[in-house]
Simulated scan of single mutants.
Amino acid sequence: MSRTYIITGAGSGIGKAAADQLREQGNVVVGVDLRGAEIECDLGTSAGRQQAAADALAMTGGKVDAVIASAGISHPVPATIAVNYFGAVEFLEAVRPALAESDAPRAVVVSSMSSLQPQHTPLTEAMLAGDEPASLDIAAQLAQDPRAGGLIYASSKRALSRWVRRESIASDWAGAGIPLNAVAPGIVLTPMTADLVGNDESRAFVDAVVPMPLNYHQPPESIASLLIWLASAENSHCAGQTIYCDGGSDVVLRGEDAWSWADERVGEYFAKVMGGAQ
Rank of each mutant, 00 (worst) to 15 (best):
A129G: 11
E101L: 08
A94F: 01
E90K: 02
L116M: 12
R147D: 13
A159W: 00
A126Y: 11
E132C: 05
E90W: 04
S102H: 03
R147K: 08
L142H: 02
K157T: 14
V109I: 15
E101V: 02
A159S: 01
I138E: 01
E132T: 08
A143Q: 07
G149W: 02
V109D: 10
D137K: 03
A154W: 04
L142S: 07
A140V: 07
Q144C: 11
L142Q: 04
A148K: 09
G150I: 09
A143I: 08
S114M: 07
T124G: 15
P133T: 11
I152W: 09
W163R: 10
A154C: 12
A139H: 05
H120I: 13
G150R: 08
A140C: 05
D103F: 00
A107T: 07
G149E: 06
H120D: 15
V95S: 04
R96I: 00
S112I: 10
F91Y: 05
R158M: 11
V164W: 08
A143T: 06
P97V: 09
S102L: 06
L160C: 14
S156Q: 08
V83P: 03
P133A: 15
A148P: 00
R106T: 04
M113P: 00
L136S: 05
Y85Q: 03
L136V: 13
L151Q: 13
P146Q: 14
V108K: 06
P122M: 13
A154I: 08
S115M: 11
E101M: 03
G87E: 01
L160E: 09
K157W: 12
S102N: 05
R165S: 14
S156G: 13
A139E: 02
L99H: 05
T124W: 12
A148D: 09
A100P: 00
S135H: 13
E132G: 04
V110A: 04
E132W: 07
R106F: 02
Y153Q: 05
V109E: 12
S114T: 06
A126P: 05
R162I: 04
D131P: 01
P118V: 14
M113F: 11
V108G: 03
V83A: 08
S111D: 11
V83M: 04
Q119M: 09
G130E: 10
E93A: 06
A134N: 02
F91M: 01
P105I: 10
L99I: 05
E90P: 01
V83W: 07
R106K: 09
Q144D: 15
S156I: 08
R158F: 11
L123S: 06
V109S: 10
L136N: 10
L116S: 06
H120E: 14
V110N: 02
L99P: 00
L151W: 10
A143W: 07
A154Y: 07
A100V: 09
L123K: 03
K157Q: 14
A143S: 13
S102Q: 02
V108L: 04
A107R: 01
V110W: 01
A100L: 07
S112L: 09
S156K: 04
G87F: 02
P118S: 10
A88E: 10
D145M: 11
A107M: 04
R162G: 01
F91E: 00
